[in-house]
Amino acid sequence: MSDKEICDNSLKFFGAVTASVSHELNNVISIIDQTGGLLDDLLYSADTGKPVPQEKLRSIVDKIAVQTDRGVRIIKRMNYFAHSVDEAVKQVNIVQLTDNFARLMQRLASQKKIEIVASFSADSIQINTNPFLLELLLYYLIKSSFISYNTERKLRLEINQSSSKVIILVEKLPDAEAPEISIIEELAGRAKCSFDITLKDMIVYYRLKF
């Protein structure tokens, strides 16, 4: 994979994440807009002599607060992701990066009835990596499992730390096509990790070792 190909694929990845996030934010804004509109309807109704129940007003305020919190969380996740391009290689908390990445990917996964289940053996694990290329690598690994299933599926993503190694495991869902290995190995090299495929509890995992 040449630098130009990496650059092109990075841009596509960034575009896919941005499109997904903006779509979700638009939904948040739409809900707040409709809820504000409902408040307007109630006030109009009150003007015509129909009293507005206190609990109805409370539920509207709560709904706006819930959606505002959701919007703030989405923006924080996008901001963290956007800053992953700031430096080529740096020390990052791999747990925070992977957790943020998994949450960003959830909307895309949900379209295919997939729930990403991330688990970490610690709250903070520091590694040296190229954060953006590691996210791109994780995207390739996860995206290969984004095929339509009739029933809901869980896709496991784990980080385990032993005395000398940090390992990220990304589950390969049944029937999913494997991503192009040469691309994965190239990205793994640039993200300062090694790549292989392993079997655990009869489940195929892609393994990134730092």
Partner: peptide
């Protein structure tokens, strides 16, 4: 719409 809050609020309006 899979955004339940959106469609229930629109329905109410």
């Amino acid at each position: 719409d899979d955004e339940g809050e959106l469609v229930t609020t629109m329905a109410e309006r």
